[in-house]
Amino acid sequence: MFTRPRIIPTLLIDDRDLIKTVQFGKRTYLGDPVNAVKIFNRKGIDELSVLDIGATKNDREPDYELLKDIASEAFMPLSCGGGIRTLDQIHELLAIGYEKVVINTALVKNPGLITKAAERYGSQSVVASIDAKKCMGDYKCFVTDGTEESKWSPTELAKEAERLGVGEIIINFIDNDGMMKGYDIALVKQVADVVSVPVVAIGGAGGIKDLKKVLQEGHAHAASGGSMFVYYGRLKAVLITAPSEKELKEAGIYKS
């Protein structure tokens, strides 16, 4: 049988807090990340991504202690990112229970790290995260938590990431972050169609129909999101949640 598409909650942390952003800006404090992971584990989610969005900006190391606490509660595939600059850091993160490291800023600023990491730990351990924003009608890639513009377009950076050796690419659309109005399907499709490694879409998921659309029309291999897994209802009450196996089957996302 073919692999079912993965649905991946992405948790944002900064200074040990679980938070959620809107367009990489306005933040809402949600609570304790370890507790959220316990709940996701009970729900049997496909995979979990943990991104420390303050690490690079504040020149911080990954928070190993917190990441270890998170990993000890999670019997599912885990990836983590934020502030990763060296092979030693990658080694430590893989050893404490993460199968994949997510690299965004270093992809542009220190591409040699990607190649070295892929050689040592295998491509499947290295994920490139591409943060795109629309500037004057064109997509541009940003680094350092969306604060620094790079020269790359998303398709060119995706191809470069694949050439450097990553085993997966996350494409995030900053403009849709936290908006819960759907993904930018055109952007995801553009990227998914130029690389042969799996592509994870993030940025804008508001519900199951958005996940389905990006998997089918956007050609994404996996669908990720933040808000839809931490908010409930129109008023956005904080609630750690995930679509059930049954809902995803009924929606036709998982084959039964």
Partner: peptide, 13 residues
């Protein structure tokens, strides 16, 4: 079939 990505990554039966 080029539609199949390598690595084989994800949940499978």
């Amino acid at each position: 079939d080029n539609a199949l990505k390598i690595p084989h990554m994800g949940w499978d039966t």
